[in-house]
């Protein structure tokens, strides 16, 4: 039997964030109220015109930060659709169940299909490195955010 306060605490402690440098100030303010982890990667172009992915990771959930480490983030253009890949490594010896969701942003930073995505369950086995992939819903996407949370946070 969990008390409602405990439940709220769990929910608050549920989300992970990784954020790109452009979105970092926004993300930081967001993270302060949403404990967990979020990650953002943003495609920019260098002086030679080659695409570069700037990335940033913010952990706000000590339990998740202890268990899950973001080891790599990549983006790739399949035609004109942005694909994102985030590699996560489990520091835990046991299996860690997580849930993840991608959010996509256009070049102006507007979210595409805001709040439309569904959380996906994912199992990370002990000491294992796994990749999470996502594809943008349409060709406008230039920036992604991966949110990771513990299943306990999903109480509804």
């Amino acid at each position: 039997m969990k008390g409602s306060m405990l439940k709220n605490g769990c929910r608050a402690a549920g989300v992970m964030l990784i954020a790109g440098w452009m979105a970092a100030p926004l993300c930081l303010s967001g993270c302060s109220t949403t404990a967990g982890t979020e990650a953002t990667g943003k495609t920019t172009w260098n002086q030679e015109g080659a695409p570069e992915l700037s990335k940033n990771v913010i952990f706000n959930n000590s339990s998740l930060a202890g268990n899950i480490e973001i080891v790599d983030m990549k983006s790739f253009m399949a035609g004109n659709m942005m694909m994102a890949q985030v590699s996560i490594h489990s520091r835990n010896r046991d299996t860690v169940p997580i849930q993840y969701k991608f959010a996509w942003f256009d070049v102006q930073g507007m979210e595409i299909g805001a709040n439309a995505g569904a959380w996906k369950p994912y199992l990370v086995y002990g000491r294992e490195t796994r990749t999470i992939q996502g594809v943008a819903p349409d060709p406008r996407a230039r920036e992604f955010k991966l949110k990771i949370r513990e299943p306990d946070a999903a109480d509804n």
């Binding site: 969701k101 709040n115 439309a116 995505g117 569904a118 959380w119 299943p151 999903a154 509804n156």
Partner: peptide, 9 residues
């Protein structure tokens, strides 16, 4: 209560 339509529980 309203639930999350994207919930994975």
């Amino acid at each position: 209560q309203y639930g999350d339509a994207g919930s994975a529980k």
